[in-house]
Design a binder for these strands. Structure first.
Lengths: 147, 147
DNA sequence: TTCAGTGCAAAGAATTTGCAGCAAT
DNA sequence: ATTGCTGCAAATTCTTTGCACTGAA
């Protein structure tokens, strides 16, 4: 059961905002997305089932999800802002294949620990972080480079 | 002496491109920048000393620097593409203060080592990475939060 | 002389916003 | 009934491109 839904509705109540059919639809689709959808991707997906929905609404909802803490904005390299659910796991980092575009996730507590250490050495207080490893996934690196 | 300049000129020759006054100016200013300038910031700086210079030229030069391998494009969170010199050090990561916007750099071989380990476990070959820690710098965290 | 580079302005792309009607509280 | 939300279209913002002229090789 989608962890973020309850959290989001609580946020809406707390902020005096309204729960709407669109927000529910968008959140459902967002949480259903395994990947890291951009506004446009999510909009296109939603449009198939619910043609009336507007791009701006999707955009505003994603920003709202981010404010509510159930989503996070990310930039991978194409010019688009992508959003990722924070509900699934506490945090995870990414392996981005530069050949096929696949994005997989990982988590390493030892790395997190060292990050804390580094921060401490700099008198810095971490609130969040972002770690992306770019390169070739196993499928692409075992294959002679195409193109 | 700026490490990237020689490298860049070699790249130009290799590619049959031309060395121009503007490219030199832009590269000089770029290397002089301690921070991570966006196209616009660099353009504005250059404009003060060399009013004739065009935004498009700065933009195209930065892309060229990236192709030449002496610069790297980055996205921190504001909507702008920022460029960073790769000449100074092999690689470094960032501490980004979300209060004052300060960006400082660090490098930790132990973290890099663990990254390699993670990649290996996933059959992934790293070509580059990006690690950013967001939070409060020492100055901002020792100060009561100024809303 | 040749062909890439420059500067301008205009085009694109992605994101954000104004507003009139709609819907949740 | 209120007051926020939606969808449309228009406005911004940032990035990229077309073109005639300039300048490096």
């Amino acid at each position: 059961m989608a962890a973020g839904k309850k959290e989001f509705h609580e946020y809406l109540v707390r902020q005096g905002l309204k729960s709407t059919r669109q927000r529910d639809l968008i959140l459902d689709e967002f949480l259903r997305c395994a990947s890291h959808p951009s506004t446009e991707e999510l909009y296109l997906r939603l449009r198939k089932k619910h043609p009336g929905i507007g791009y701006a609404t999707v955009h505003r909802s994603l920003k709202l999800f981010a404010e509510a803490g159930i989503a996070e904005a990310r930039h991978f390299g194409d010019g688009q802002t992508r959003y990722e659910s924070t509900a699934s796991a506490e945090h995870h980092d990414h392996l981005v294949c530069t050949a096929c575009g696949a994005i997989s996730e990982f988590e390493d507590p030892r790395i997190e620990q060292l990050q804390e250490k580094v921060a401490k050495d700099h008198g810095f207080t971490i609130t969040s972080h972002r770690l992306e490893l770019y390169g070739l996934c196993s499928a692409c690196s075992s294959r002679p480079q195409t193109g």
